[in-house]
Design a binder for these strands. Structure first.
Lengths: 212, 212, 212, 212
DNA sequence: AATGAATGAGAATTCATTCAT
DNA sequence: GATGAATGAATTCTCATTCAT
């Protein structure tokens, strides 16, 4: 598990920290904490308030409803993820190496922030509200960033141009999800290095132009 | 236990059908049907009753509580799965070929009965009641059957004897789950042939004694 | 506690026994048995049926409703009580000695049949249906019998004639109840000899004409 | 704890009044009021809410469950009883006279607050929760107070020392219950002076050291 | 910026009772 | 003489949400 990460703590880079009112911060922290042990549906607003040390009513001052709170928590994580992703690929030469790093970074984000991963991969997708949320917009921003990287690879000639870049992106994201979901559901650790190597091996051997 | 059944549809040959009171059958069918679209927790007893065309009270005549209903639905599926598994390996020569067939049969069961797969892989595991249920006993019966097959392979010399048979079993079951879960959660189809081939390739290349 | 009582078992004298259909008998026995441990309101018809080894529906073949069953059980006890009371005063000379015996017999009936006592003193009184029941008619028959005894005492000159006989009767019945109720509620034994002596002492010293 | 209170009405001096939220106060008052006419088991939460003029949900904001409400109502009464008891024995010389007063005060409390008496003597004892409640702790506090009084009598020489003080206490409490229960159940008035005189006569003639 | 008080809609579960066979 | 199947109405309790202060 060893490596980088002096950006390991979520909130060092979080712009949120400074802007939020203390109550809002406490509420979001409370939900994050509760989601470590239970699913969103079985977390009650009463519990959130109790954990946060505020009243239930305050939740509704800052959040439109319980799901909006979930979306804002997710958005906060996504903010960190995006900042990190953009940082992580800097100083790396070659789209393919950048992509490998991005995949590693992505898996690592899930490994270090299982609550985040669970929200993103399990909790929000059912509910239609999600697709109108800021969080969803951030996800799209992130996937566009990934797409841009793939396109750069194609332009560079390091990635095959006979597969639609969007399909490549979906395969990558699918592989990551696929690899992490059971671990998230059954509470096993995600071994970042192993998982991301595995994925890269499979994806790259498939999509990389065979230099021969 | 042996007889009938190499058919696809779960309920045509189900002995359950005749034995249950009509209300009980309708209630179980209603839950199965509702679980196609939503998770167990968000299915209400009122909905089950309405869907079944009976009153809520009747549910409690036949089932101890809502979870017991879930467990009985699961048990019914498991009954079919076990009968099928035992049938499917008959007439096949060699433990390895039997094992391949059993894996195929297992994946196929999930592919054809997604509700069953979701109950087994997602819904029941949290709750401690499950581990005291008949359903759980049937699962253990099934996994013992799988274990016996592996042990036969070891005796035959077709499966390596330097890996504990229990570990082999767990790897197989884990691989199947791992392969099916994302499809179940995101409502994608499970491609039985592809998935089971994939798993067998990975597992067999690892566990088969290299004859050379 | 020792004395008489080869009429201790309720059903030796019960005319009921022969007349009832087996199902009816079992249902009544079941209720009696259940009332040993819980109040009538918290005994369910399902429990009664289960205990009796019959179906709930059968209860409604023989009894108009749950309370009717209670009343019939009570009536059966009252039948025994009346038969016994009438027997017990025979062969005794003097209304006062008969009265003493009757009081003893009454308390003894409660002591030996606590379920009966509880039904009569606690369970039936609230509900208006009781006052239209056969059981209530039997109670009135019994209290008339007691009244007749008191009147005989007055005629004999052994009981004061300056107190209305009805008031005397009420005082006696009140004293018995008063003495037995706490024991019934808190599940202590009723010590027949002690209790009836106590009552007679109090009542008699009050109501008996002072021979001086 | 000492102050105020030689008044009859429970709630004039009750400290509870000011501290409780209006809804909580109304709910407790509603239960008290309903218990005048029916037993606890047949009082529904719907009724309580309707009587209180609040919603059922509010009950569960202030009370853990229906029984907790009962226990808190009881505790409030017990608070008054304790305050009163401690006041009532002040300024009285001699343990025996204090004891007589305490018995009177106890019976009077039952006579004036029949609902209280019924809760304490009838409603709570079955359920095990009671023995973990604050109310139970207060009862123990009260009975310890009574015990201390008896012990003082023994030290003074006015109460026999050859009977365990605990047994004396139990006899007193038993006699009070015994005397009040039928009145409570059958809705007759409790005549404080008469009942307490009666009890003291019986108890004292037994336990007092016969001077000469 | 935060709270205390209160709510309405609905959750699972219970229970006496009915009726066709 | 007895049953299996089913019900309707109620019961306790939960929970996200609102609003005046």
């Amino acid at each position: 598990m060893g490596s980088i990460s002096n950006t390991n703590s979520l909130y060092i880079n979080s712009p949120a920290e400074k802007t939020h009112a203390p109550g809002k911060t406490k509420i979001m922290a409370a939900l994050r904490s509760l989601l470590e042990d239970k699913e969103f549906v079985s977390v009650t607003t009463a519990e959130i308030a109790r954990t946060a040390g505020v009243t239930e009513a305050l939740i509704y001052k800052y959040f439109h409803d319980k799901r909006d709170l979930l979306h804002q928590v997710l958005a906060e994580y996504l903010g960190v993820m995006i900042v990190r992703a953009e940082m992580d690929v800097r100083g790396i030469k070659g789209a393919l190496h950048q992509l490998r790093k991005l995949i590693w970074s992505h898996v690592n984000m899930y490994a270090d922030n299982r609550v985040f991963a669970r929200i993103l991969l399990i909790e929000v997708r059912n509910h239609p509200d999600y697709f109108h949320s800021d969080a969803y917009r951030m996800v799209k921003y992130y996937t566009n960033f990934l797409l841009a990287l793939i396109e750069k690879g194609v332009e560079e000639g390091s990635i095959r141009n006979d597969i639609p870049t969007a399909a490549v992106r979906q395969t990558i994201l699918g592989a990551i999800e696929h690899a992490c979901l059971p671990a998230l559901i059954f509470n096993h650790p995600i071994l970042t290095d192993e998982v991301s190597d595995h994925i890269c091996e499979m994806i790259f051997t498939g999509i990389v132009t065979r230099g021969d």
